[in-house]
Design a binder for these strands. Structure first.
Lengths: 146, 146
DNA sequence: GTCGATAGTTAGTTTAGCTAAGTAATCACT
DNA sequence: AGTGATTACTTAGCTAAACTAACTATCGAC
């Protein structure tokens, strides 16, 4: 299988993944209301919970958004009592975001709900298919982080 | 195929897919500008081009959005000259959406660009990995259509 | 101490999605 | 033939997420 740059099969796969991602997110978005956290908020909260305290800038980079966006996201999470801010003792410009106990709890409870409809779909798959999706998710996360 | 409901592995996969989808779309969104079509517009145009003339309602179902959303999407595509509307001779309530020549052209030119960064990432994968992603995309599309 | 760079915020715009409510056409049924 | 329910789409108004541009405040270097 020669993998020449610009392989049309790669483009086709990219297209389909793009389409699948759009539809997947549209599907789970309707579930977001049930837990009171929209997808971007949940995603950011997840990073904060698992990534430990981190600066707003680092969070923006992790979430691949611009600083103003992360300012708003953190403000919302803070208003909900899910994260807190800590000034940096060394650098007065910097603030670190840390998850509260409530934030960790809500994330745990929420992620299950948020992906419930997805989980239900996936649950019906054969084990081999489940493995395919798992591998694909792994691959994508690795590619997209790089 | 013994897949007990609530299989924790299914939930874990759902979580990872969700996260991957968020990051994937954030990645390609920045590329959308290059072709002048945002992701939802491009997705809808794609359905119209490949799905032939279809009613607004059918398009809404295909795109998994509510009617008002598709009204706006079609209005934008129409304003851009990428699709046209045709009244149904039999049913006065219905309008069919058809891609214009320009619409087909823009889609062709645009799809490559729109997923360019994705394609570049995917291009670097081993053939087996590419197949995994392809299968996953297929699975997801099938699940999400149902 | 001033000057450029960095961290974060504010202001304003765009886009996408929703619900609720409205219009117009069709269908079903007497 | 007419009334009532259903269907297809639109309008109006809301919320959320993203952006750019421009601002404030702090830091580091010279």
């Amino acid at each position: 299988m020669p993998q020449s740059p610009g392989d049309p099969r790669a483009a086709a796969v990219a297209n389909r993944l793009h389409s699948a991602a759009i539809h997947l997110l549209r599907r789970v978005r309707t579930q977001d209301d049930a837990m009171g956290l929209t997808a971007p908020l949940a995603s950011a909260l997840s990073v904060v919970v698992f990534g430990g305290p981190l600066t707003l800038g680092a969070l923006a980079r992790a979430e691949q958004v611009r600083p103003p966006t992360i300012t708003r996201v953190v403000a919302q999470l803070e208003r909900l009592g899910l994260v807190g801010r800590e000034p940096d003792p060394k650098d007065g410009r910097v603030q670190r975001v840390r998850a509260t106990a409530k934030g960790r709890k809500v994330l745990e409870a929420g992620r299950a709900r948020r992906v419930a409809s997805l989980t239900a779909l996936i649950d019906a798959l054969a084990p081999a298919e489940l493995v395919t999706l798992e591998r694909a998710a792994e691959l994508l996360e690795r590619l997209l982080r790089g």
